[in-house]
Write a protein that binds this DNA or RNA. Sequence first.
DNA 1: TTGAAAGCGCTACCAT
DNA 2: ATGGTAGCGCTTTCAA
Lengths: 341, 341
Amino acid sequence: MAVTIRTIAEAAGVSRGTVDRVINNRGGVKPELERKIRRLIAELGYRPNRAGKVLAALKKPITIGCLLPGVGNPFFDGIIRGFRQAERELSDFGVSLEISLIKGFDVREHVDALRALARKNVSAICAATVDVPEVREAVNGIIRSGIPVATVNSDLSGTGRLFYVGCNYPESGRTAAGILNLIRRDEMELLIVTGSVHMQGHNQRIQAFTQELADRSVRFHVAKVIETGDDEEIAYRCALKALRDFPGVNGVYVTSGGVSGVCRAVCEKNLAGKLTVLCFDDIPSTRRLIRDGVISATICQEPSQQGYRSVKMLFEDIVNAHPPEKRLYYTDTVIKIRQNL
Amino acid sequence: MAVTIRTIAEAAGVSRGTVDRVINNRGGVKPELERKIRRLIAELGYRPNRAGKVLAALKKPITIGCLLPGVGNPFFDGIIRGFRQAERELSDFGVSLEISLIKGFDVREHVDALRALARKNVSAICAATVDVPEVREAVNGIIRSGIPVATVNSDLSGTGRLFYVGCNYPESGRTAAGILNLIRRDEMELLIVTGSVHMQGHNQRIQAFTQELADRSVRFHVAKVIETGDDEEIAYRCALKALRDFPGVNGVYVTSGGVSGVCRAVCEKNLAGKLTVLCFDDIPSTRRLIRDGVISATICQEPSQQGYRSVKMLFEDIVNAHPPEKRLYYTDTVIKIRQNL
DNA sequence: TTGAAAGCGCTACCAT
DNA sequence: ATGGTAGCGCTTTCAA
């Protein structure tokens, strides 16, 4: 039988309660006794048993708060599915989620939603939010109040967040370049369509993409970079104009939303299939466009894994009461084409 | 607080032991009482708590036996990693693995190894083995003796195996065709290199590949199909001969092992980069060849997920004592190129 | 500062 | 056929 808290207690000649106090740093143990117990823990190789912990913790249920700007954005459905999957698996351990969905990236709304979650006395928070000073401050405040916060899908720089689970944006950009390099051997005139020049992930995707094209000695130049704010209508109009202004464009690279708007413009100009379209993520409209041969490939980031792993790891953090091994968890960069969609 | 076995017992006016007997079909309960208890279970929505089950089951440790033909075959390293990961996560629940690695696909050896595992009184078996009558019989015998068996990576048809976790071979073949269709627009003369014409998975990969090429109206014809028995040396010699005999070959499709042998031949004939090579799985030698630009893409099957999920699900089966929802679990078909390797 | 005991949900075993 | 009880590993609370 494994080494339990009882083994330690007997070896030290004390009660299990005392050992528990040492293990969980609850204080109130004579220093020399504490040292003795710690030594025994190390020597005997004691590892707390999760089943026991969980069973004991069942008395007070755990709620994990989740924040996503998912309203009207089907990309986040995958993350939500992952959340729910984790919730189901952890329901036996008394875990339930409080998912707060908001629309868009308004800073005030994000801050308010985060604070609202914190007030519902959740045990931890998992959020996909915007990396701006106001949000960072709010998050740091919440962390100081004792609620651990993890980021999912988009990170918060310079905060005390527990860990980040999400896309490796540079790698995803490089991969797009790699696919383009496989598909086309001619000189490329590229139209780049991005969500926001203020989103770090989008910029990294552009930067890594062009860098990799250069590294692979692809002859290319960028005709234009369009910013859409992830709005389909804007994407459509701007793409249409750009395709008119630059008739030589033979490749379109879409770093985030606006995919179907761009493709509408491509189809209207009768360029579907001629021009190579690459984009990110797997949402219903993108799937259709891949099936129809308008988009060659989409590069995905396993959103449901992101949701699943972040909640699972937050739970581990809550019951283990010790920080996770890593602070960055990247999901795989997944290439999807018609056949493996 | 959730509905527990105690809730049911009190509601039925019986002891927890009696409820336990009903839940686990241990018999020895008066029929009408049993009906009453079952009704209450349904009405109150009782769901057994895994933490409690696991804790109680901790008294007698669980061993899961695993069989892989992994000796000298680096592909199986990924599955082993998945096994170990699951073992680590389940160690708190008293689970340990007994992994038996054998070399190659000799039927006698496989049968012997399976029987040896069964004799070590494991609680369940997870095996990647060969789909031939002798093995199927052995497996069915083991299942009849009360040990559940799951298949991983390659399935056993017409046996009582609990479930299969592994590759969707037809999809992986179609995906290879899809990539070829993206890369090349010219007429293709293809060399197909396969492991064994007796392996169902390999055949499915060929069949789905050529079918998908036809469906996509790719102009192609197959110059030759080579069988290598997954031997690098044979692969090398046969590929060299085929490339000599069919100088028009501009594409090579390798369904299983023999990848580096084939690529050696390709390089010797100075065809690296000119000819499109597609293969499966991600092993060190394949990685190098992708980095060096000899192979365009490899289609992978998440081997570590296969190992991880099969063990996790066997454990669930053991503690839940009720069969899993599905009998087929396919891992994703993952396209790897230089940039997302 | 420390010990003792109850209890989380479930199973196993002995007694009736 | 059924009940009662101990115990799995851990936390928590009360008492000393």
